[in-house]
Design a protein around this nucleic acid. Structure first.
Lengths: 217, 217
DNA sequence: CAATTAACGCACTAACTAGTTACTTCTTTA
DNA sequence: TAAAGAAGTAACTAGTTAGTGCGTTAATTG
């Protein structure tokens, strides 16, 4: 997010700041896209909330869809980079897996926009993500992270052999994602406040249990 | 779907058929809402695809949101009624649970509109479902279905005690729903065709395994 | 069969929406 | 310091969009 113009540290604050404007637009866009979806979000609203002129959006991002693509890429890069920062390779297999399940849950909980952005992208059959090469590269790292945890666990005799790392990855995401993205209908269907503090604690424990039982011998 | 006017069995076919028109509108609306979301769907397109006049939509359903609400209610009632028709009470606990997991998966697979409709409703914070009393009633039946399978399993000594039926229910839905609703981004992230025949078979087996391990002692 | 009711359709509108044109103002650098 | 270029703005356009007013035609019923 910090661009070419911020090299000199001691420079005076600019009134005209391209990077800051861009960042404000991206931040506002993320919120609007998450709240209303790609189709429901309004470019005028994004401009207003970013305290920028609508013209600037087209100047920096070319189109509404171009803006959406950047927002989506940034969102994926953020979670992928956070996963790498967990340093799961330093933990024992069981501890690493539990930490990943917990992290995934907490990330979704703190960044609900991520869930809505992904839903919106899937409604559009991933047409924006398809164009992004950087996303593929960073995704591979996640899969190999889980692979290596599984392998270490099998070697240590604590995990069973033959668990597909991709299926495991999907399941770790699924048990948290579904609960949180469908929290509104879920609260009605199950007649229970799924977002109450104790309900959230119960769920993360349940999810850890689910995943641990899945890999245990 | 069959209304008051169809009482007499031997009547002549009508050129003007309110029930048939309503049904065509609902069918077209379901497809359009599923494809584009509530915000993205176009009333004109729904009318055209239903081979009805737009005026009829407002005549029968009052508004675009009224139409969406009806579509959503019908979708929920359909899956809830199909679940009841499984007669899981006639099967042993393990068989019943496996059948429910398999049914849920196959229902999502055959009715992908259901997933998108639910996503759309959650984007709108369940404001339409909130108004629907009939949905709450039919949901209770699903929860008690799973509860009784669990109880029977515990009594028979095949399931462990203390598994929350709501959490189990959510998890059964989650492992299928997430995989299918995010199939477009998933195919990119995991660089694997998630909808290939063998991939789908692998997933349902994995899901059954996940759920069985979760409830087994 | 006349009168009423319900189904249906055309054509319109008022508000909105993504994107643009043409311009001003600030900042950098040759 | 002058010129160039980049940042920023207001007002506009062309096309959409949900929703309606009002008239027509078919079916029902007394």
């Amino acid at each position: 997010m910090s661009g070419e113009q911020t090299e000199k540290p001691g420079r005076k604050p600019r009134i005209r700041d391209a990077e800051a404007t861009k960042a404000r637009i991206l931040d506002a866009a993320k919120k609007e896209f998450a709240k209303n979806g790609l189709g429901g979000a309004r470019v005028d609203d994004i401009a207003e909330k970013a305290k920028a002129n609508k013209r600037m959006i087209y100047h920096y991002f070319e189109s509404k869809e171009g803006l959406f693509q950047t927002v989506l890429e940034d969102a994926y890069l953020d979670i992928r980079s956070a996963e790498q920062k967990l340093h799961l390779e330093d933990l024992d297999p069981k501890g690493a897996l539990e930490k990943l399940v917990r992290f995934t849950w907490e990330y979704y909980l703190k960044n609900p926009e991520f869930l809505t952005l992904v839903n919106s992208e899937n409604l559009h059959r991933a047409k924006h993500l398809k164009k992004s090469e950087i996303i593929k590269v960073s995704s591979r790292k996640l899969v190999s992270l889980v692979s290596s945890i599984l392998e270490r666990g099998v070697t240590a005799g604590v995990f069973r052999d033959g668990v597909d790392p991709v299926q495991l990855n999907i399941t770790i995401a699924a048990v948290g994602y579904y609960y949180l993205t469908n929290r509104f209908t879920g609260t009605i269907i199950y007649e229970r406040d799924l977002m109450a503090k104790d309900a959230l604690e119960q769920r993360i424990q349940f999810n850890i249990d689910t995943i641990m039982r899945l890999v245990t011998i």
